Amino acid sequence: MRFAISNFPLLLIGLTCYSLATFAQTQDPLITSMRKADEARVAMGSVPPWMGVSQSGEPTGYTVELASLALKNMGAPALTPVLTAWEAMIPGLLARHFDLIGPGLVITEPRCRVVVFSAPMIAMHDALFVRSGNPSNLENLRQVTETPEIRLAVVTGSSQEAYVLKQGIAFERLVRVPDIEAGVAVVIGRRANAFVVGQFSISKPEQKGLEVVVDKSTPLSGIGAAFRKEDIRFRDAFDKQLDLLRTNGAWKNLIVKYEVPNWDMLTKLKRASHVVPSCE
């Protein structure tokens, strides 16, 4: 038994090296392009502590560290963050302004028609962020939809915007914002009664004067990295590295470091199709 345990890390190292060597030998076009440029250009938004860019220009956050580990094990160069508006990320990827989209977009069926996603790195339901005390007594998105006087903030181009429009909320009742920080500001400034976004998207909301109301009737959402469809082999190799990071404890260490919820769920969501079956 002692022999098996002592050699387990060596086995994992061997598997990682084998995976890297096998992938490198295929001369994948994307990693070849990254190595030639000596950088991996990654579209990123600002969602601290999950994703962001430091004042010195360094990419930071839980999903960034996790993606960096996977890419490093694949032999990719260091990440170069490209701060990008959420609604501009997929068009920018298809126009080759960057190599991939960092793990910040929700995996959805319409998005899967044009890009391929990695396994989820965050899993959550949508939630309403309201002022402390919940002055409008909101309980879920259905109530918001059915209450004409309620104004709802959404990030432009987000999965939440698409969802509430599909649920029938009037277009003119939406307050569109470019990012999460702006969504917080419009609620605190009383220009909207609530801001809908993923339940873990705002860190320590109580310190910002907000209260979170999780709507568990909304579909479970997964957030992953996104790649061009032509780079599906690269995505597959990336997912294999995530599998190894689950197994060797490195991913769990980041979960503990950043206090990420739902680890048990993330251990089961190993492909994009596990949250959206129609996705490749």
Score class of each variant (00 low, 15 high):
Leu83Ile: 12
Ala192Lys: 02
Ile5Ser: 13
Trp263Asn: 04
Lys257Val: 04
Arg271Val: 12
Leu71Gln: 00
Ala21Pro: 02
Ser68Glu: 13
Asp231Arg: 10
Ser136His: 14
Trp251Ile: 04
Asp243Trp: 14
Lys204His: 15
Asp126Met: 11
Glu181Val: 04
Phe3Gln: 14
Pro81Gly: 09
Leu93Lys: 06
Trp263Lys: 07
Arg111Met: 06
Gly168Phe: 08
Ala272Leu: 02
Ala194Gly: 00
Pro178Met: 07
Ala127Gln: 08
Met124Glu: 15
His97Val: 00
Tyr163Ile: 02
Val82Asn: 07
Ile202Leu: 08
Ser273Leu: 01
Gly104Thr: 13
Ile180Ala: 01
Trp50Met: 06
Lys240Tyr: 07
Leu100Phe: 14
Met51Asp: 00
Ser118Met: 09
Lys208Arg: 13
Val213Trp: 11
Leu71Asn: 03
Thr63Trp: 04
Glu109Cys: 11
Ser19Gly: 13
Gly92Asn: 11
Pro9Gly: 06
Val106Gly: 12
Gln27Pro: 03
Thr22Val: 12
Leu128Ala: 07
Leu11Asn: 04
Trp86Leu: 14
Cys279Gln: 02
Lys268Pro: 04
Gln143Trp: 08
Arg235Ser: 12
Met124Ala: 13
Pro148Glu: 11
Ala119Trp: 07
Asp38Val: 06
Gln143Lys: 13
Val197Tyr: 03
Lys268Trp: 05
Val154Gly: 05
Ala182Trp: 10
Asn73Gly: 06
Thr247Tyr: 10
Thr60Asn: 05
Pro205Lys: 01
Ala225Gly: 10
Thr247Trp: 07
Gly224Phe: 00
Ala162Phe: 08
Ala119Val: 04
Glu149Asn: 12
Arg131Met: 13
Cys279Ala: 08
Pro48Gly: 03
Thr247Val: 12
Leu93Thr: 07
Leu20His: 12
Val196Tyr: 05
Lys252Phe: 11
Phe117Ala: 12
Thr145Pro: 07
Gly45Thr: 12
Thr267Asp: 08
Gly45Lys: 00
Lys216His: 12
Gln160Leu: 05
Asp215Ser: 05
Leu128Lys: 02
Gly61Glu: 09
Gly168Ser: 04
Pro135Val: 11
Arg96Asn: 14
Leu165Gln: 09
Gln55His: 12
Arg113Val: 06
Asp38Glu: 12
Glu149Val: 07
Met124Gln: 15
Arg142Gly: 14
Val115Gln: 04
Ile169Lys: 03
Gly61Phe: 11
Asp236Tyr: 01
Ala185Thr: 03
Phe200Gly: 00
Ala95Phe: 10
Asp264Tyr: 09
Asn248Leu: 02
Tyr18Lys: 07
Thr22Leu: 13
Ser217Asp: 15
Cys112Phe: 02
Ala170Asn: 14
Tyr163Lys: 08
Gly168Lys: 03
Asp243Ile: 06
Lys204Pro: 01
Val214Lys: 03
Ile169Val: 10
Leu79Glu: 00
Phe195Asn: 09
Ile31Asn: 07
Trp50Tyr: 14
Arg190His: 12
Leu79Pro: 02
Ala153Gly: 10
Ala24Ser: 15
Phe227Asp: 03
Ala185Gln: 08
Pro148Leu: 04
Gln25Cys: 01
Pro49Val: 02
Ile122Cys: 05
Arg176Trp: 09
Ser33Glu: 15
Val106Phe: 01
Ala225Asp: 09
